[in-house]
Design a binder for these strands. Sequence first.
DNA 1: CTACATGCAAAGAGTTTGCATCCGC
DNA 2: GCGGATGCAAACTCTTTGCATGTAG
Lengths: 148, 148
Amino acid sequence: MSHQRWDYAALMRERGFRVTPQRQLILDAICEGGGHTTPEEVYERVRAKSPAVNRATIYRTLDFLCELRLVVAADVGNRRMVYEIAGDTPHHHLVCRTCGKVEQISHETVKALFAKIEREQEFTVDMDHLALFGLCPKCRRAELRGKR
Amino acid sequence: MSHQRWDYAALMRERGFRVTPQRQLILDAICEGGGHTTPEEVYERVRAKSPAVNRATIYRTLDFLCELRLVVAADVGNRRMVYEIAGDTPHHHLVCRTCGKVEQISHETVKALFAKIEREQEFTVDMDHLALFGLCPKCRRAELRGKR
DNA sequence: CTACATGCAAAGAGTTTGCATCCGC
DNA sequence: GCGGATGCAAACTCTTTGCATGTAG
């Protein structure tokens, strides 16, 4: 999925922000991540193309892109933040803690839980990205085999 | 719920570890948290009673207590770890992204989602601590008021 | 008495901020 | 040219580590 730079550029300008080379490089870097990208990965990828770009710019731009809702941030635990291009449909991730494979869950599936929490505790969960850890089918079978 | 210091002390000694005043103070401090306590809160509470205790000891002891499984650690997002006495029924956390307040959700509530994921995608979610972000009732009302 | 635990200080990682400079519009 | 964006360096938070000292068993 391309991030369609032209649209993003127009969107930024419309809202009175500037389209800078750094911002484009950082968007590219997040795209290259496919799924999720850490700030450090963004930094490395950007630096490969343009070594002068500063870490502070990475962080400021990631925040900026999140505020524009072009990018979403997800806290995947272990004190790690990951960023990804905001997609059309909100989705969540299943992360296999053995092989690291990432699957998706639809927002529909998760919404039932959020609704239940809202109903029972009045707490409004508004996460646009949820990361759930566990075992993918393959690793689960491997684990069962190992335990016998 | 008390942490029953005598049992813990016996357990530590059985396994060849020492029962020190610091360890007892730190256990007390986690207990005082009721649900969940950050390292900083532990530090403050311990320091109120025994000002010489060092931050490094807090971190080392929290790790130690986790390894003994007397305490469980939960990554509550926002790069914040919280600790609590082990042994309660497994539960999860709701974190208010405005005021930072942390509430609990029962494992029962969450299990339905995990079961659904298992059924639909064969993926076994096995998280013992899930952190969901959103707005607590109070901040939600404040936000609604602000938007009018 | 001995090994484990602690205090201290310093180093780390990861992130944020103040300020001068730069450059997109 | 103006004001937002960037680079730089420094600060900041949270956590970890090496080493000498202290103390539980």
